[in-house]
Design a protein around this nucleic acid. Structure first.
Lengths: 295, 295
DNA sequence: GTTCCGCATGAATCGATAG
DNA sequence: ACTATCGATTCATGCGGAA
């Protein structure tokens, strides 16, 4: 009974606007149900949506627990609003994980993809987040789960993508080769490209970096004690760099401890975060304020 | 026209039984359509099915090209037979990945999972094969595709799994692999060692054993020129060790160049391989015979 | 006998061009 | 409008020959 009343209290949407240095960038944090909050938002106003919704859970008492069988039904009205608020050139990155129950993987994430396509979304890509230091443990019939899906959806075939922003160091093969060259050789080559002298080197000059693939190898964060973030800051950062430019707007309808907003602020992007649970709402504000102080 | 006639000729099933040293283990290779061949097989007789069926392809001329929209319809009768021939304690590993067409991912592999569940299969796990040396290329709206699905299906919640067989043995690994690797190789790619599961050499130093996760880091084999669609032998080897014991029976209904049969033979398991294309059937026999000579 | 370097080669995807 | 073919783009890997 008391819990119900607390839930009612949360229904009233509270909102705070945090500003980074010189009021250049804004981080809006909204306390409330994300469906209500989304309905009040302007159409075609968001450049990137990145979120990790609550995982399906059969235990009814748990916070955010939605029964696996009801998951798609619960999530579709939200994705409908997300489709509305996203710019035509924008991108939606959805981090979702299947619940393994009774020794079997549930199909709600697959059902969701199919249902979202019917809603008008394009399923453009499936990134894999390879968690290097995944949760340890041993089970009789399965190994440690070391990966998660990062589904990419778009409104149109053409969307903004800034690939150069996330280029990575090339394979060790090329790196080693460059390192073995003397500094003189490198300088000589720079000034005499195409002369035939050191031609084999010129092939690699300016190519220390390569484009990444759709597999992201990132460690999970273990530092935060108050609230273990669903994903490490590196993850939203990577997608913010890839799909937005400074001044764009990033949205996370399930903000949690504020990781997405912090990543956006750090990279000079505006952000909107929605969180239903007051405890996390306060925590997110606190974490974002700490980030602002740093800048 | 000529192609149709060749296809008709292939309909007649040819079969060969290859034996390893001392006739201890058998490798049956069947030339013919896998659906026909499967129907002649005994129920509940296979311990592990591991295969990589032809991917859906809009081009009709390619080997096994099946249109994406017809893929599930084409594959379901085969999985029905696979369900029949698999032992109750057996496992089915399906290597499949949808291609990108028109800027969007097709959903046939998702549809297939859902349809196979209705058929009676349990979808127990999804392994990720992380291909580090994926096909290069650059496009305005996507990165290189560096992973494939390895779907695990079972008949029952209880199935045979020998986890210790795929643990990384520090002793063996140090003796056989580490010393054989050149310094360049070690620098080039740390993750190759330990059957593709090691993430970092330093991580394993001083440790006896470690369980792997459900992410497999393995390179594709680029040296095989005769058959373009091979997975590295390490891949079937790993699953053969994990899900069978010596003397068990491994089945690959789309044998290709014979990789699965070779892996099984090498690990002292019996195997059955089915291949529809005569060219690959001959190639598989040749490759397996070469393996037998080695032992 | 090692180590190192050069080079061909992929279960690719897009956009343009042509029928 | 829809399909078929072709060129351009890109990078980790293994192999063979050289140092």
């Amino acid at each position: 009974m008391k819990k119900t009343q607390t839930a009612l209290k949360i229904q009233t949407i509270e909102k705070i606007n945090l500003f980074s240095q010189k009021d250049k960038r804004k981080a809006d944090i909204i306390l409330g149900d994300c469906l209500d909050a989304l309905k009040k938002m302007k159409s075609n106003s968001i450049d990137l949506i990145i979120t990790s919704p609550p995982y399906a859970d059969q235990r009814k008492n748990t916070y955010g627990g939605i029964h696996p069988d009801k998951y798609v039904e619960w999530f579709l009205p939200i994705t409908k609003e997300l489709l509305r608020v996203l710019k035509p050139t924008g991108t939606f990155i959805l981090n979702i994980k299947e619940k393994v129950s009774n020794g079997e993987r549930h199909t709600y994430s697959l059902d969701l993809i199919i249902a979202m396509k019917k809603q008008g979304w394009l399923w453009t890509e499936e990134f894999i987040w390879h968690k290097k230091n995944c949760y340890p443990g041993k089970w009789p019939n399965r190994f440690r789960d070391a990966w998660e899906r990062l589904l990419q959806f778009n409104k149109n075939k053409k969307f903004n993508m800034y690939q150069e922003a996330v280029m990575v160091q090339m394979g060790d093969w090329a790196k080693t080769r460059l390192k073995n060259l003397s500094e003189t050789d490198k300088r000589r080559d720079d000034s005499r490209v195409g002369s035939g002298f050191g031609k084999n080197i010129s092939k690699w000059v300016g190519r220390e970096k390569a484009y990444p693939s759709n597999v992201l190898v990132m460690a999970t964060e273990t530092s935060n004690k108050k609230h273990s973030a669903v994903f490490p800051k590196e993850l939203p950062s990577w997608f913010v760099k890839l799909f937005t430019k400074p001044g764009d707007v990033v949205l996370d309808p399930f903000l949690g401890s504020g990781t997405t907003s912090i990543a956006a602020l750090e990279l000079d992007r505006n952000s909107i975060g929605i969180e239903i649970k007051e405890e996390y709402y306060r925590l997110a504000i606190q974490n974002i304020n700490e980030q602002i102080k740093k800048t």
